[in-house]
């Protein structure tokens, strides 16, 4: 049995990181639009995808 599973801890840390990134007050920062696309839309999806990519890297690297 592993007491401190590093992968689980890293993922949990990502989850904790996601909370401030994807809630107010940070969310009210992006305003206006970038290249015709609303900044909040870009910010939300961008951060979200970033978190997922990081999670994928963490989860799959040690998987095999």
């Amino acid at each position: 049995m592993k007491r401190a599973n590093p992968m689980r801890q890293r993922l949990a840390a990502l989850g904790l990181l996601g909370v401030p990134l994807l809630t107010y007050p940070l969310l009210s920062l992006p305003q206006g639009e970038i290249a015709g696309i609303p900044a909040p839309y870009l910010y939300l999806f961008g951060m979200w995808i970033l978190l997922i990519v990081l999670a994928a890297v963490v989860a799959e690297r040690r998987g095999k």
Binding site: Q9, A12, G15, G18, L51, A55
Partner: peptide
């Protein structure tokens, strides 16, 4: 759900 799932433990 995205954030919750990260709590894999």
């Amino acid at each position: 759900p995205t954030l919750m799932l990260l709590c894999v433990g």
